[in-house]
Design a protein around this nucleic acid. Structure first.
Length: 263
DNA sequence: ACCTAAACCTGGGCGC
DNA sequence: TGCGCCCAGGTTTAGG
């Protein structure tokens, strides 16, 4: 499941591939990933347009077109952007220079949208950017009765963290996922803030986590799955103390933690 | 405003 | 070998 590090990895690969190229054609194999506009309109809006820039905002890729229009792609759970097709291709972008970019998505949770101008994605600050300060984090958690694990997945509070890195950051910070957000001490908040930044930076370094579906634009797996400490480790020993890792559902998401190390 | 939970999807893994 | 069942989760939506 692509989170911030996975999307960043793909963004870095495809940026030089798309910028400056013109969209000469769009082939839609399944229209269900395209939101808010008919497949025909989508084609009409895009064909002939040139990519000016590509940026990432949290888990979104934001394609700026030379006209001032924008294209956003969210990969959902199983979305991929590929230089070569796989078995689940839904949309193909034919680019100038005889290059194709393939959007693949087995489970159809990915979303592709067209905007006339730069969209407001309604996201909170993202870790690794200066707006995500300890002070902001502290204020955002105060007065919240929700479990910290659930809040970490709230993209309006903090954009880019998904289930894998929420679990990993809490383990690194030694904080139990069930803790109410407002119950975290200043020291714990600071520790969690740091853990979030560290785990994301490390995951980018290892080109993302290929726990299940994720591959980069070249179709290659990342390596951060080799460095996971609790995510997906149900019934395995905690890497710090050897206690058996628990799995529970929280907010309908798998939550993995060590009862001994995470208080 | 806050909080919870269902719905959207289908490939893969499992049990039989 | 193959069938049926269940699980995976990011985001949106609905409802309390």
């Amino acid at each position: 499941m692509p989170e911030l590090p996975e999307v960043e990895t793909i963004k870095r690969e495809i940026e030089p591939f798309v910028v400056g190229r013109t969209i000469e054609g769009v082939e839609i194999k399944d229209h269900r990933n395209i939101k808010g506009i008919s497949p025909e309109q989508f084609k009409n809006k895009l064909i002939g347009q040139k990519f000016k820039s590509l940026t990432r905002q949290a888990k979104y890729m934001l394609f700026e077109l030379a006209s001032g229009n924008y294209l956003t792609i969210h990969l959902g759970m199983t979305g991929r952007l590929l230089f070569e097709p796989d078995n689940y291709v839904k949309v193909i972008f034919n680019l100038s220079g005889k290059k194709d970019l393939y959007f693949s998505d087995a489970r159809l949770f990915g979303k592709i949208r067209f905007f006339n101008e730069k969209p407001d994605l309604k996201l909170g600050p993202e870790p690794l950017q200066k707006e995500f300060t300890v002070e902001y984090f502290k204020n955002a958690l105060a007065k919240r009765n929700t479990a910290i694990k659930v809040l970490l997945l709230d993209q309006k509070l903090l954009a880019g963290v998904g289930n894998i890195y929420a679990n990993e950051a809490l383990f690194r910070a030694g904080i139990n996922p069930h803790r109410k957000a407002s119950s975290l001490s200043d020291i714990e908040t600071k520790r969690l803030h740091k853990s979030i930044e560290e785990v994301l930076a490390e995951a980018i370094k290892y080109r993302g986590t290929s726990d299940s579906w994720y591959v980069d634009a070249k179709g290659e797996k990342g390596e951060f799955q080799l460095h996971l400490r609790v995510y997906g480790k149900k019934n395995k020993p905690c890497p710090k103390c050897g206690t058996i890792i628990k799995r529970e559902a929280m907010g309908q998401r798998g939550t993995f933690f060590c009862e001994h190390c995470q208080k």
